[in-house]
């Protein structure tokens, strides 16, 4: 999902853990006990979580860009306020998650450096462009919808700070999906051109959204341990299926067609079955060759550079205030 790149191989050296401690740790996970920052944890658990949580945080931060693209062109003040509010929430999500990652012993500066240098990944979905206003509908409805599907089980993650951040995030996400659906609904009920715009957005976002859940289960490397450690509760394919089953009826309600001629309801399994997903596209986008990868990184680096004076000023102001307070204290003595 927002941590799709986790499904790639971890190349760090494997540390031999104390078997007694490891066993005790795993028993706590099995018992659904929460692991807190100062508790003993296997090195691989710590590393997996740092990667997962920071990739998730980076995704929230980069995820502001596709929507930021439409703030000045929102069709009404109501829509503009909503969009601004949603983007502000995503910044908040990034911050909650960075804080959660920091409890594992990595600094904020290191995390942001990893994003800026391209060492850390973020979700492939944010490398697609938002070409029309209908994309604001599709992003909220489908992208946030897929995110929620993935994030609800994370509210029960064994790592306390991550689980608590996810609870807060999930509460806020539901408005994101609903406002997206509302945009789609308004367009779908509108003029022929508006409905066509909604359909076009669904056509472009459907497949990339299915890829958000990460590679198919046979190709995924991390699932077993992550499941045992209660970091992950459902496999990529299970979550993807839940998403498809939830979205097909909603698309029908909107009167829009899912862009998949092979889509059919499987009576036996009770699930909607899609055609084959083009995983080569997924790998390409994740590797850096999506429609907007370069632009996203450029904008992020530019924001970082242009913010230096603000951070410098904040530090200088804090130092000035501290000096004044000290001088006043001395004068009062």
């Amino acid at each position: 999902m927002y941590a799709q790149a986790l499904d790639q191989k971890d190349r760090s050296p494997v540390i031999a853990e104390d078997p007694v401690r490891l066993e005790r740790f795993e028993a706590r996970c099995t018992a659904e006990d929460k692991i807190e920052p100062k508790d003993w944890m296997p090195d691989a658990y710590r590393r997996t979580l740092i990667r997962q949580i920071s990739q998730h945080a980076h995704s929230e931060i980069i995820g502001m860009q596709p929507e930021g693209n439409w703030v000045t062109r929102a069709p009404s003040l109501r829509r503009k306020s909503i969009l601004l509010s949603k983007i502000q929430d995503e910044a908040g999500h990034g911050l909650y998650l960075y804080s959660a990652a920091e409890t594992l012993g990595v600094s904020r500066e290191e995390l942001s450096e990893q994003l800026l240098s391209g060492k850390a990944k973020y979700s492939s979905i944010f490398n697609y462009s938002t070409l029309t206003w209908a994309d604001m509908g599709a992003v909220g409805w489908l992208v946030d919808g897929a995110a929620i599907m993935n994030q609800i089980p994370l509210c029960r993650c064994s790592y306390g700070p991550y689980a608590r951040a996810m609870i807060r995030i999930c509460k806020e996400e539901s408005f994101h999906q609903r406002q997206g659906f509302e945009i789609m609904h308004t367009l779908a009920k509108g003029t022929v051109a508006q409905k066509a715009m909604a359909q076009d957005a669904l056509n472009r976002w459907w497949w990339p959204c299915l890829m958000m859940f990460g590679p198919p289960d046979q190709a995924s490397q991390h699932s077993d341990t992550s499941m045992r450690w209660k970091i992950k509760r459902f496999s990529n394919d299970e979550l993807r299926q839940k998403f498809i089953d939830a979205m097909v009826p909603q698309a029908r309600f909107l009167g829009l067609d899912i862009p998949d001629p092979e889509l059919r309801f499987n009576e036996e399994s009770g699930h909607w079955q899609t055609g084959a997903i083009d995983w080569s596209e997924f790998r390409r986008v994740l590797a850096g060759d999506g429609p907007c990868n370069r632009q996203r990184m450029r904008v992020r680096r530019q924001a970082e550079d242009e913010g230096i004076w603000v951070r410098d000023a904040a530090r200088a102001f804090a130092a000035k205030r501290a000096a004044r307070r000290q001088a006043a204290a001395i004068a009062a003595e």
Binding site: Q88, G92, L95, Y96, S99, E172, A318
Partner: peptide
């Protein structure tokens, strides 16, 4: 306790806490 944040001093931390943790 609701979470944490980075800030240069107490006043800025209060302002940021308002923005980050009390939007609703």
């Amino acid at each position: 306790h609701v979470g944490s944040l980075h800030a240069c001093d107490d006043d800025m931390a209060l302002h940021m806490a308002r923005d980050v943790y009390t939007r609703r």
